[in-house]
Design a protein around this nucleic acid. Structure first.
Lengths: 194, 194
DNA sequence: GCAGCATGTGTACATTTGTACATATCGAAT
DNA sequence: ATTCGATATGTACAAATGTACACATGCTGC
């Protein structure tokens, strides 16, 4: 009874196609992502992909937007559970060291995302929102500069750990996170917090 | 008289094609990089590209390897000029805040590089070497963990600054770099240095 | 039941793509 | 000067690609 709800017998098809697009991107790269491969991955005929999406670029854009939003939500959720500066630090360490950000698939997709965003302003806008959300979540516990530093750290270590044959372990990450967060007292006063 | 030197009347043609490939990648993305566009950018006929490179992938691989090596050399050169911990810190700040790493073109190419490397082991190997070189350069002045932290920082801040509408200024970067480098005394002893 | 329309599908087609290759051209060794 | 191989180029072509579209199908409101 809602407005346009419950279209027909496969109401989630559109979404399934978007998810399939991310799968294809993840294992072939954007440069080898085609209508036909996406259709095959989604288990729908070719015509179905062009029915839901005007162009391939539009589909990829939607897929990347979804990816960014999911990553952003995961980040926020992880930090929402924190109650004080210490647990926030732990959350950041968790994010870096595997549970959220560092899955190979996510990382791989993020490389493709960055490259894509650089040429597609709407996707770049979503990425900016994502970054801002992450920072806002961090700013519940840290001053703005520290928040930005941590955010960049998550990014950088995640990438390097994925390339490196011997990724940093939790203790090392913890050490580095502590350095970035501990010294804020040097230049900044205390921050609002619970 | 050297072995195979001085082929013919356009001895740098091969290299020009590689450079052109990077140009095309930079402004169209890997997914829109074709033999024909590269040929046009290099000012050579199509046949010339296929003459020098077995396949398009081989050409892209070579281009990315060259990119990584150039970036690596630039990083090392910048740090080679440092004489002590303080000047090393300054070098790192320089690298982050613009002179080496943060040019939009380089950053853009690096996204494409990461994505490409994830699917092309030889390129991934070069990237690892690059990372190791960077760390080795940093380890002249800092302990290994600090070196890794700094390296990741360069990566992360560079990326975020390129996305952000208001990039961190030099003072902020300097503050963060100081945090990462200052606290090494907490857990580690002193390091070899000049 | 029926009409109307969103949903769904198979096929067709012009373009673009990677690559092969026949042929040309030039440099260097003899 | 002639030979020979590396360098260079234009053309050709099968395969893949994005997209259009004519047609089918079943849901919804009457």
């Amino acid at each position: 009874m809602a407005e346009g709800a419950a279209r027909r017998n496969d109401p989630e098809r559109r979404q399934r196609i978007v998810a399939a697009a991310l799968d294809v991107i993840a294992d072939r790269g954007v440069s080898n992502t085609t209508h036909r491969r996406i259709a095959a991955a989604a288990g729908v005929p070719l015509g179905s992909v062009t029915y839901y999406f005007e162009t391939l670029e539009a589909l990829l854009t939607e897929a990347f937007v979804q990816l960014a939003e999911e990553a952003s939500d995961a980040f926020r959720a992880k930090l929402a559970a924190a109650t004080d500066r210490d647990s926030a630090r732990e959350a950041v360490i968790d994010i870096i060291s595997g549970s959220v950000w560092a899955e190979p698939r996510t990382l791989l997709l993020s490389y493709e995302l960055y490259a894509f965003a650089a040429r597609h302003p709407p996707v770049a806008a979503i990425m900016r929102r994502w970054m801002n959300n992450s920072r806002a979540a961090l700013e519940r516990f840290f001053d703005p500069l520290t928040a930005r530093g941590l955010d960049a750290f998550v990014e950088g270590i995640g990438i390097h750990n994925s390339i490196d044959l011997r990724p940093l372990d939790r203790a090392a990450i913890s050490d580095l996170v502590a350095r970035v967060t501990n010294r804020q007292l040097l230049s900044e006063a205390d921050v609002h917090d619970g």
